[in-house]
């Protein structure tokens, strides 16, 4: 018998359906790949059809056996898009369903530790959005913020921004994946901007797209950032350690003086 390769649509739901099919067909695939990844030579292919109801059954099984925290670990690890993360997660799930109890504490078990580490990395990236995202008020009053996180974690931050900035309408946009979310004071909706009024690289709004007062607040913030540092204690290495350079292009205080 040839070894078999699973192909799915790359979504988390799709992955859960792959898990469903692996159990019902009693397969042991050598790879589970999103369709955009070139397929392996010399394998039989099986294409997963995504189905919300099946995905939910698998999800319920995970949460029933491992608790919500296990679900979170699996989901965040999946978002890491690490190479072959699907196979890792599949092994983890087999282990979970075999033990019939949470295994997330068993950190000396290599697959469990690996999933835990991926979970931590991805969660940290999401937290960095909460830290380093900056809004600029646009001419029509909407607050706009660009960000290009390493992983596709914008959706994990929406609850935070929705409750914190409930009384202003905003757009948070992933400039690398070219989609974002728009909050219009009522609901949050997924959007794509085709002809952006912002710089594609830095996300900075063009001057004529900015609110007339925007410049003034940015100037104040830049002065504050400069003045609150203590020159005698200067330590740029420490600063960069906490605030890696790849985030600087979004930071109002790190942009050229306005």
């Amino acid at each position: 018998m040839n070894s078999i390769e699973y192909r799915y649509d790359g979504t988390f739901q799709g992955f859960l359906c792959a898990v469903f099919d692996i159990y019902s067909r009693r397969d042991d695939p050598v790879a589970i790949h999103p369709t955009e990844v070139p397929s392996l030579l010399f394998t039989d292919k099986y294409t997963v059809i995504t189905n919300a109801e099946r995905a939910e059954r698998v999800w319920d099984g995970i949460v029933r056996t491992g608790g919500e925290k296990t679900g979170e670990h699996i989901y965040h690890a999946f978002l890491s898009c690490e190479k072959n993360v699907e196979i890792l997660l599949m092994r983890y799930l087999r282990h979970l369903f075999l033990c019939k109890r949470p295994v997330m504490d068993d950190l000396a078990y290599p697959d469990v530790l690996k999933v835990f580490q991926l979970y931590r990395t991805v969660s940290r990236e999401a937290h960095r959005i909460l830290m380093f995202l900056r809004f600029e008020q646009s001419a029509d009053g909407v607050y706009f913020a660009p960000f290009a996180p390493k992983y596709d974690v914008l959706p994990l931050t929406l609850n935070h921004f929705k409750s914190r900035f409930a009384s202003q309408s905003w757009i948070i946009y992933d400039t690398a994946r070219n989609y974002g979310f728009y909050y219009d004071l009522q609901t949050v909706e997924r959007i794509t901007i085709n002809e952006p009024a912002f710089n594609r690289e830095t996300g900075k709004l063009a001057r004529n797209a900015e609110h007339p007062d925007e410049n003034q607040w940015q100037a104040l913030w830049q002065i504050y950032f400069k003045k609150t540092a203590i020159a005698e204690r200067k330590n740029l290495l420490l600063q960069q350690n906490f605030m890696p350079k790849r985030f600087w292009k979004y930071l109002t205080e790190k942009r050229a003086i306005v």
């Binding site: 909460l130 914190r164 950032f225 330590n235 740029l236 600063q239």
Partner: peptide, 23 residues
């Protein structure tokens, strides 16, 4: 946050930037 209000406080606190002295 409250109805029509601005903001909330996050239990763990959030750092938004770091000065040149690393604070």
């Amino acid at each position: 946050n409250t109805q029509g209000g601005i903001g909330n406080a996050a239990k763990a606190g959030i750092c938004h930037s770091f000065t040149e002295d690393g604070r």
